[in-house]
Amino acid sequence: MTSCHIAEEHIQKVAIFGGTHGNELTGVFLVKHWLENGAEIQRTGLEVKPFITNPRAVKKCTRYIDCDLNRIFDLENLGKKMSEDLPYEVRRAQEINHLFGPKDSEDSYDIIFDLHNTTSNMGCTLILEDSRNNFLIQMFHYIKTSLAPLPCYVYLIEHPSLKYATTRSIAKYPVGIEVGPQPQGVLRADILDQMRKMIKHALDFIHHFNEGKEFPPCAIEVYKIIEKVDYPRDENGEIAAIIHPNLQDQDWKPLHPGDPMFLTLDGKTIPLGGDCTVYPVFVNEAAYYEKKEAFAKTTKLTLNAKSIRCCLH
């Protein structure tokens, strides 16, 4: 018999989150649709729960009410004593943790798909938090293969000092899905179709896995975050240069030392320094102006996964 890495157990509980950011409308629209008619997301033997994560922000069509829901799922915020004085999103995070967690427990949901849009030209993107997770690498390989020839990129946010504390991190297997470009507060049919297909293929993978299909060893190309880059700023902290036209919409493309990065209003080009080629992502993302992030630098690498098969009882 072929030796293989056996994944822990079959997958039982899956959640699909929309509206973690209330103005990213593809996930909101799909989740609302699936709450009314969820036939397309159901798979035999699998509990799939669509869920609106930040209903107040969705109602106002804004990213958040008090603070970013997708950055506060750490033990400090989840452990705060519940009171009306807490920011709305912290209270909501505790409610979500109660419903789908608790985080880092045996009772937490197996998989959470968190649906997002970006204003950046990132196409279909899967966000991975753990480079050693054979199950998710296999799932992402399946999704990428199923979507081809449509490109699907994998963004690895594993980093020693950049801690995200994402909404989906309460699950055993957290999956971020990011599709763009799409303006905030807008629905685009092409973007919706791409996100819908990503979810379909992900659920198909889980179904095949649960039925005992063995997935042979595989490898995927990923883009691992190195650092986030702020806009150049003046002495008052105001933005002093904008994304250069040569960099705009060039997510995932190589940016070499000396290539144009920013452009000042008086026409001066600010190039990339250093001696390493990087791959920019979230270029000129609207939501990241407040976070002082013009783009993120990534490096390209390959992740390998062992063969996996479900432990059938």
Rank of each mutant, 00 (worst) to 15 (best):
34 W>T: 02
51 F>L: 09
83 S>P: 12
212 G>S: 01
28 V>R: 10
278 V>Q: 02
34 W>R: 03
193 D>L: 12
233 R>W: 03
125 T>V: 11
239 I>K: 05
8 E>I: 10
179 V>I: 10
38 G>M: 15
206 I>K: 06
36 E>Y: 07
169 S>C: 09
78 L>M: 12
209 F>K: 04
260 P>Q: 02
309 R>V: 09
124 C>K: 02
235 E>P: 09
138 Q>G: 05
17 F>M: 09
41 I>P: 02
53 T>I: 07
158 E>W: 03
165 A>F: 10
84 E>D: 14
26 T>I: 03
311 C>Y: 10
180 G>L: 06
303 L>F: 00
239 I>P: 09
155 Y>M: 15
60 K>V: 10
258 G>W: 07
118 T>G: 05
36 E>V: 07
2 T>P: 15
309 R>H: 12
150 L>S: 10
36 E>W: 06
22 G>V: 08
167 T>N: 08
180 G>C: 00
17 F>I: 07
247 L>M: 09
307 S>F: 01
312 L>E: 15
85 D>H: 13
93 A>L: 12
148 A>G: 07
100 F>L: 07
74 D>S: 13
151 P>A: 08
56 R>G: 13
291 K>E: 10
167 T>Q: 09
164 Y>F: 13
267 G>A: 06
269 T>H: 07
280 P>Y: 05
81 K>C: 13
206 I>T: 07
123 G>M: 01
159 H>N: 14
219 A>N: 12
283 V>D: 05
301 L>P: 03
122 M>W: 00
218 C>F: 05
197 K>N: 12
205 F>K: 04
27 G>D: 06
127 I>V: 13
299 T>R: 12
30 L>G: 01
224 K>T: 05
45 G>F: 01
53 T>S: 14
310 C>R: 13
24 E>S: 06
274 G>S: 06
50 P>E: 05
281 V>G: 02
168 R>M: 09
250 Q>V: 03
16 I>T: 06
235 E>Y: 07
14 V>Q: 06
49 K>V: 14
313 H>V: 15
94 Q>G: 11
293 E>F: 08
127 I>L: 10
158 E>K: 01
299 T>Q: 14
102 P>M: 10
141 H>I: 06
185 G>M: 05
96 I>C: 07
108 S>T: 13
127 I>D: 01
288 Y>C: 15
230 D>S: 12
174 P>W: 15
272 L>N: 09
190 D>I: 02
35 L>M: 14
23 N>P: 06
204 D>G: 01
265 L>T: 10
273 G>W: 01
134 N>Y: 10
221 E>S: 04
45 G>A: 07
101 G>T: 06
151 P>W: 05
164 Y>P: 15
217 P>F: 02
81 K>I: 13
287 A>E: 12
298 T>D: 05
208 H>C: 12
71 R>Y: 11
301 L>Q: 10
158 E>F: 04
163 K>Y: 08
36 E>C: 08
6 I>W: 13
125 T>Q: 04
292 K>G: 15
288 Y>D: 15
124 C>R: 03
97 N>Q: 12
214 E>R: 08
52 I>H: 00
77 N>K: 12
198 M>E: 04
137 I>H: 03
58 V>Q: 06
211 E>H: 10
142 Y>E: 03
210 N>D: 00
303 L>A: 00
126 L>Q: 04
180 G>R: 01
256 H>D: 09
168 R>C: 10
195 M>H: 01
173 Y>W: 10
273 G>N: 10
175 V>G: 00
174 P>C: 15
95 E>H: 12
38 G>L: 14
170 I>H: 06
7 A>W: 11
151 P>F: 01
308 I>G: 03
23 N>C: 09
282 F>K: 14
264 T>P: 02
33 H>Y: 07
142 Y>P: 04
78 L>K: 10
87 P>S: 11
57 A>E: 02
229 V>P: 03
23 N>L: 03
100 F>Q: 04
27 G>Q: 00
96 I>F: 05
116 H>N: 07
149 P>L: 04
13 K>D: 01
281 V>S: 07
153 Y>P: 06
9 E>Y: 07
246 N>D: 12
303 L>P: 04
7 A>Y: 15
14 V>M: 01
148 A>S: 12
187 L>V: 14
139 M>I: 02
76 E>Q: 12
175 V>K: 03
270 I>C: 00
199 I>H: 03
237 G>S: 06
97 N>V: 10
135 F>I: 00
54 N>Y: 00
290 E>W: 08
72 I>P: 10
97 N>K: 11
144 K>W: 01
143 I>N: 05
133 N>I: 01
139 M>F: 01
103 K>Y: 10
141 H>F: 02
270 I>A: 01
196 R>Q: 06
295 F>S: 03
84 E>T: 13
284 N>P: 03
65 I>T: 10
256 H>M: 09
232 P>A: 04
58 V>A: 11
268 K>P: 00
126 L>R: 04
93 A>S: 11
44 T>C: 10
19 G>Y: 02
272 L>P: 01
111 I>E: 04
304 N>L: 09
66 D>T: 08
151 P>S: 08
16 I>H: 02
224 K>L: 01
18 G>F: 00
208 H>L: 15
284 N>T: 04
258 G>Q: 09
259 D>H: 04
6 I>D: 15
168 R>Y: 08
215 F>R: 01
13 K>A: 02
240 A>W: 02
34 W>E: 03
18 G>E: 03
219 A>R: 08
298 T>Q: 00
183 P>V: 02
186 V>S: 11
181 P>M: 00
5 H>D: 15
149 P>R: 02
95 E>S: 10
8 E>P: 15
266 D>Q: 08
69 L>A: 07
311 C>G: 15
180 G>N: 03
85 D>P: 13
149 P>M: 03
53 T>K: 01
278 V>T: 08
44 T>S: 14
248 Q>T: 07
83 S>T: 14
281 V>A: 14
235 E>H: 10
165 A>P: 14
71 R>N: 14
45 G>T: 09
182 Q>A: 15
271 P>H: 11
204 D>Y: 01
37 N>W: 05
7 A>K: 12
149 P>V: 04
150 L>E: 13
140 F>I: 06
37 N>T: 07
285 E>A: 13
111 I>H: 03
91 R>Q: 13
9 E>D: 14
81 K>Y: 12
220 I>S: 02
4 C>W: 10
143 I>P: 03
22 G>K: 08
131 S>G: 09
224 K>R: 10
291 K>P: 09
147 L>W: 04
276 C>D: 15
117 N>C: 11
161 S>G: 13
108 S>P: 12
222 V>F: 03
107 D>L: 10
132 R>A: 13
